[in-house]
Each structure stands twice: as C-alpha cells, then as structure tokens.
C-alpha cells in the first residue's frame, strides 16, 4: 500500500494556547479502552474542555471547522499513544503548527501523514494573534516551500528533512517502505549474535 503525497494543507486555524500540552490532556487514558481508533475525536481534550466550560479553543464557534491546530511549545509530550494524533485527526485537524513538538508525537503524526511543522516563538504568537483577530484567515502549511502562510504574511517553517521528504514524496507509510528491504531483513537478523542464540 503506497501513501499519498502531502505537499500542503490549506484551511483555517485554531490556536490552542499553553506549553507542554501532554497526550493525557489531548486524549485522557480512560478513552483508550477501545480496540479501534474510531470515535476518539469526540473525546479530544475532553477534561480540558469540561473545565473550560465550553470556552476551550476547539469549542469556540469562531474556530469551528478549523483543520490546522496552532500550539505553543513541546506539544504532545508524555505517552506514546497514537490515540492522541488519531483523536486530533478524527476531530478534523490535518496539520499542526507549534514552536516545538515532543518527539514521539511528531513521529506518530508523520506515520499518519499529518504534517507537524515548527515556527519561531515570535512567529507562532503572531500567527495565533492573527487567527484570533480574524478567524476566517486562510492558512497554508506548505511543506515544499517550508513556510506557513496566513493572508499576506509568510512565516518560515521547519520540519525534519527526512519527514518532509516522506510526506512530500508520499513515502510516509513506513510499512510499505520497510517491506521493500525484502530478504535483507532476514540477512541482517542472521548477523546479530543474540538473534542466533550466541
């Protein structure tokens, strides 16, 4: 199974403020008692939304239909649960912009073909402010040009070169890529002492 090329995502933004938003906050563990990822979208940020009394950014009518989440620093830290990007995806987010992402979260996004790009702190704030001011602003996350555009403004954006290549070339489906190694996998295994029982 080959994956599709992801060159850019265009749509509207939803700024979710706060550093270190962890995966327990994105999808609390009690909602992981499932054997499929279906239905996770409805529990996205469940406790944070409950505590915000309907004032959480994802419940804000102004950002309804947004498909690009704008976070701050170290977004997605904590557990390796792919349920986090799956919940975000099923809620409707197709791309993420932040000052930084936790490593496993970023890897999980790539595995699902979802771009997670980094911008500077100042640009992240400016972008969030621009969207707050005009929620209808059209935003483009452009992986080819390595930039985020919002109206007339262009922000440089970074994404690890390998991940960018995988998304743009449509090789983010790792299983397909790994299978291409064919029998080289068994050959490598036979060279590892513990696999051979020493």
């Amino acid at each position: 199974m080959s994956s599709t090329s992801v060159e850019k995502i265009t749509g509207r933004g939803c700024p979710v403020p706060g550093n270190d938003i962890d995966t327990d906050r994105i999808i609390p563990a009690r909602f992981m008692k499932v054997v499929t990822f279906d239905g996770l979208g409805e529990h996205l940020f469940e406790d944070a939304r409950e505590q915000a009394n309907g004032k959480h950014a994802v419940d804000d009518k102004r950002f309804e239909g947004a498909n690009i989440l704008i976070a701050e620093r170290n977004f997605g830290c904590g557990s390796s649960r792919e349920h986090a990007p799956q919940a975000l995806l099923r809620f409707g987010f197709k791309a993420f912009i932040a000052q930084s992402f936790a490593e496993i979260f970023a890897g999980n996004c790539c595995a699902l073909g979802l771009p997670a790009v980094c911008v500077s702190e100042a640009d992240g704030k400016a972008l969030a402010d621009a969207v707050e001011l005009n929620p209808e602003s059209e935003i483009t996350v452009d992986l080819v040009a390595e930039e985020v555009r919002c109206g007339e403004t262009v922000y440089p954006a970074s994404i690890p070169a390998g991940v960018r290549k995988q998304l743009v070339e449509g090789t983010w489906d790792a299983t397909a890529v790994l299978l291409e190694a064919g029998g080289d996998i068994e050959t490598k295994a036979s060279s590892i002492p513990y696999v051979q029982g020493f």
Partner: peptide, 13 residues
C-alpha cells in the same frame, strides 16, 4: 517507545 502504526511496522517487518 513507539506509536501504534510503528507497532504494525514491527509486526510486519
């Protein structure tokens, strides 16, 4: 630590 898609990768390859 890996995500579920990578668990699939390891099972398959």
């Amino acid at each position: 630590g890996i995500g579920t898609s990578q668990v699939r990768d390891v099972l398959a390859t």
